[in-house]
Design a protein around this nucleic acid. Structure first.
Lengths: 310, 310
DNA sequence: GGCTGGCATAAGTGCGACTGATGCTCGGTG
DNA sequence: CACCGAGCATCAGTCGCACTTATGCCAGCC
């Protein structure tokens, strides 16, 4: 195979018109250039350079090699530029996934800020509930996921992913406006032991959050209906099918025929994480992780929904 | 600069999914592949491969490198193919020059046969009198010239070109049909000492041939008119401006108002050569040289004009 | 005819690439 | 749970290649 380093030498020879001049330009000795060109001719199986007393001239084969050398060396520079762009966040891509309420709240903020700081990076966001998101991470389909869970686990998970805590997301009780408890002040979870509940999708982290919260008050919630869309949950609650817990991030829009009640000291909190694979992380991933943490802190500082309903 | 050999290793790693498999495919040890990839990562300034317990996966930067590696390696194969094509006469070019009467006679035969044998080679022919042709050779504008001269010089010229003898081109006396000597049998050059002559262009090899021939018979021809086109010479002769000598190759077409007379043992001959630079010659040049020699022999074997007019 | 500019060649040296051996980690398994 | 195997990293050693220095050779030029 033709050696690209040698092709570079030949190109310099062609440009300068002599071995000596090329050697000087490349900071080699004339001897080295002579040997390299000879080796290249051996590889090529053809005479590439016509030697004459005053400098050299390329043969047709030599011209062909130089022509290709130009294009190959250009491609090499291109590759180097692309690497630099990726490392310097002036290029590359970042594929993310988030669950619905995060995708509607913190992600737009984070994405807009990231795009502003690093306009060259191509961003994409898909909707995935935590379980799917982690699977997508492991499959290499995405680089970063925003997930939630009940425990505050900053730990390096044994399964190759690490959850980086972003913020706490307090959950609120939602009732139909004509529910008997809708007017009561200081409702507690224990008051709702016998109510039918609206849950998240089956076998979903969301459901486990509700169960865990109720369990702490000594009862297992009876799930009357399951849906993974907070808007749908609000619909079912409004229709009187049951009551539910909705996290703050899911309460950006609140129907006017339901009431939202804080649970005071009992308030269960879901924990929001940025989740990424352990080991190598692209510069874009690292930058977005930092940014998400920052957005999380900012978000925690002001609690619009809490003020609104308490 | 990124090393193309290492990029090739990375590409194999990407294709096989593990260092070990790539090593086997490349007939290396796993250790070598590991070291090469590590070195490439140092050059690139970025992690290119995510190592895991079961094989490896490329990072985004790694994918970028492999993408470029593909295109670079493709270009390399292309270059190799082109070299092979040039060496095997399946490509490349051959630029030739010939004087007018050769371009009208032996060159069409040679070119047509060459094109048949080596259809991939791009052929071109330009018209140059010997002096210009040799200059063009030295300037590198052409690869091969067909020239003529008076002496039979196969020698390696001191000026860096070699003339390869192709054939002898006998010269004939041409007279207006109403010329007093037109009917005389056995005309000799000495009979024409006082005639006005039509010569070639000033300071042209062609003129020197006429002078040299006349000198041998003890007179210096008086040049009445000079032109480098044999058709024009025939015109002037027909008009009675003077007499001239025209070589056989220039007598493919003969006006009907002139007569052509052989000079028997006195016949001067111009020598036709294929002329090329010493030193490196492309495969196409060598092949055409051989072919021209062959055409020269064939041409010498049958002498249409000689038979026609003697 | 010596001088100069330019390429080739020979011998020596140092770096880098590859090998072989070994250690480490992770995931699967009895 | 301890073991095992697949796979990568690392180390030391060897070998080859690329470059340098030194020299020779050739051609053009004053």
């Amino acid at each position: 195979m033709l050696d690209v380093r040698r092709m570079r030498v030949l190109r310099e020879v062609a440009a300068r018109g002599s071995f000596s001049a090329a050697a000087e330009a490349l900071s080699f000795t004339q001897s080295a250039v002579s040997q390299q060109v000879a080796a290249l001719e051996r590889e090529a199986g053809a005479v590439l350079v016509e030697r004459s007393a005053r400098g050299v001239r390329l043969t047709e084969a030599g011209e062909a090699v130089v022509r290709h050398a130009d294009s190959i060396l250009a491609k090499l520079s291109e590759a180097e530029a692309e690497l630099e762009a990726i490392a310097g966040l002036r290029g590359g891509r970042l594929r993310m996934a988030a669950f619905e309420s995060a995708a509607a709240t913190i992600m737009p903020v984070a994405i807009s800020r990231f795009a502003e700081q690093h306009p060259g990076v191509e961003l994409s966001l898909s909707l995935h509930e935590p379980e799917d998101a982690v699977a997508a991470l492991k499959a290499g389909d995405i680089d970063l996921a925003v997930t939630f869970g009940s425990g505050k686990r900053e730990d390096r998970g044994a399964d190759g992913v690490t959850h980086h805590h972003l913020l706490e997301d307090p959950m609120y009780l939602v009732l139909a406006e004509d529910h008997p408890l809708a007017r009561k002040r200081g409702v507690r979870l224990a008051d709702l032991a016998s109510e039918p509940w609206i849950g998240g999708a089956p076998d979903c982290e969301c459901n486990r959050l509700i169960s865990a919260a109720c369990n702490r008050f000594g009862f297992e919630p009876r799930i009357a209906f399951e849906t993974d869309d907070y808007a749908a949950v609000q619909g079912f609650v409004a229709a009187g099918v049951g009551v539910s817990l909705i996290a703050e991030l899911g309460l950006r829009t609140i129907r006017d025929d339901i009431v939202v009640r804080p649970l005071g000291r009992d308030t269960p909190c879901r924990q929001i994480f940025a989740t990424a694979l352990d080991g190598y992380r692209s510069p874009a991933t690292v930058a977005m992780l930092d940014l998400l943490r920052e957005v999380g802190v900012t978000h925690a500082a002001r609690r619009p929904v809490l003020e609104l309903v308490s």
